[in-house]
C-alpha cells in the first residue's frame, strides 16, 4: 500500500536563537503506510512529543519535511490548518480538553471546524460514540459527569469524528486501568480497519507496542536511533538497554533462559509467541544450548 506519511530529516529546537538552544528533535526520518501501526518508544524528554506535534503542523520544523500523502505539509502555510483534520492528534490525558455542555456538542467541535454539514456531523457523532462502546444516551450527558475512562473515550471520539487518515496517539492509555486500556485499543483497531488509517502510538509499554505495532521508531535524545519492524528493533535489545529502554517482559524471560544455558529462540514478543518457543524447545529434545 502507498505511503501516507513520511518525514525527512526533521529538526526542531527549543529556545532557538538563545544560548540555551536545545535540539528537541534532530534529523528524524520515517515512513508510514496506510493501514500500518507505528509505535514510538523513548524516555520522557527524548523528543517524542515534539515529533508528534510536527506531524499535524502544530510545530513547524526548522528544517526537514513532513510529507502527507506525498505532499509537503508546509507547501502552503495558510492551509496547514486543514491538515490537522487529516492527521488527528490525540494528546496525553485528552479528557482534560473536554469543554462543552454535552458529549454530543463536544464530539461535534472538530467536525464543525471542518465545515461539515449538520447531517454529516450527526451521523459521525453517533457512529463514533458507538465505535467507542458507549451507547447513544451518553450523547446528552455532560462530559464532566462521566468516569475517567468514559471521558477519555469521548475525547477520542472527538478526534475520530474528523476521520483522520493518520491517527496519532500520545500515551493514550496513561492512567487507565487494564479494562479501560483494552477498550481503548479495541476502538483504535476497529477504526484503523474500517478507514484503513495509519496509526502512530507513543507508549512506554513495550508489551502493548509489541502486540499492536507493525513498526517501531526508537527515539533517544532527540534522534531516531532505530526504525524497523518490531522484530528488528527488539532484536537489538542490548542497544536498547544501553539507552535505558526495555524489551517486552516475555522477551526478557527468554533471554534469561538463554543465559541460563537453554537453547531457546528468543525472538518472541508476546506471551503466545514465547510459549510456542518454549514448547518447541521440548520437542527438539535437546534443551541445552
Amino acid at each position: 500500500m502507498s505511503e501516507i506519511l513520511k518525514t525527512e530529516d526533521l529538526v526542531f529546537s527549543y529556545n532557538n536563537g538563545s544560548p540555551v538552544k536545545r535540539a528537541a528533535i534532530n534529523k528524524v526520518s520515517f515512513t508510514l503506510k496506510k493501514g500500518e501501526t507505528l509505535g514510538i518508544i523513548g524516555h520522557t524528554g527524548s523528543g517524542k512529543s515534539t515529533l508528534v506535534q510536527t506531524l499535524n503542523g502544530l510545530i513547524k520544523p526548522e528544517s526537514g519535511t513532513v510529507f502527507l500523502d506525498g505532499e509537503d505539509l508546509w507547501k502552503n502555510p495558510k492551509q496547514v490548518y486543514q491538515k490537522r483534520f487529516r492527521v488527528g492528534l490525540v494528546f496525553q490525558y485528552p479528557e482534560y480538553q473536554l469543554f462543552e455542555e454535552t458529549v454530543y456538542k463536544d464530539i461535534a467541535f472538530g467536525p464543525k471546524n471542518m465545515g461539515l454539514s449538520e447531517e454529516e456531523i450527526d451521523f459521525r457523532i453517533k457512529k463514533y460514540i458507538s465505535l467507542l462502546g458507549l451507547n447513544l444516551n451518553y450523547l446528552e450527558k455532560s462530559p464532566f459527569d462521566l468516569s475517567g475512562g468514559e471521558k477519555r473515550r469521548v475525547a477520542l471520539a472527538g478526534i475520530l469524528a474528523m476521520e483522520p487518515e493518520v491517527l496519532v496517539l500520545d500515551e493514550p492509555t496513561a492512567g487507565l486501568d487494564p479494562v479501560g486500556r483494552e477498550n481503548l485499543f479495541k476502538a483504535i483497531e476497529l477504526y484503523k480497519k474500517e478507514r484503513s488509517a495509519a496509526v502512530i502510538i507513543v507508549s512506554h509499554s513495550m508489551e502493548d507496542l509489541a502486540r499492536l505495532s507493525d513498526k517501531l521508531l526508537v527515539m533517544n535524545l532527540g534522534e531516531a536511533k532505530m526504525f524497523g519492524t518490531v522484530e528488528e528493533v527488539f532484536a537489538r535489545y542490548e542497544e536498547l538497554s544501553k539507552m535505558g529502554l526495555d524489551v517486552p517482559v516475555v522477551t526478557k524471560i527468554l533471554l534469561e533462559l538463554k543465559a541460563l544455558g537453554l537453547n531457546v529462540n528468543t525472538k518472541a514478543f508476546t506471551p503466545a509467541q514465547a510459549i510456542k518457543n518454549i514448547e518447541l524447545l521440548l520437542k527438539e529434545g535437546d534443551i541445552n544450548a
Binding site: L58, Y96, Q97, M114
Partner: peptide, 16 residues
C-alpha cells in the same frame, strides 16, 4: 503549562 497544552489540543481539533 497546562494552558499551552490545552491550546495545542484544541488547535489539533481545528480550533481557530
Amino acid at each position: 503549562d497546562e494552558t499551552d497544552k490545552i491550546i495545542s489540543a484544541q488547535k489539533a481539533r481545528g480550533a481557530d
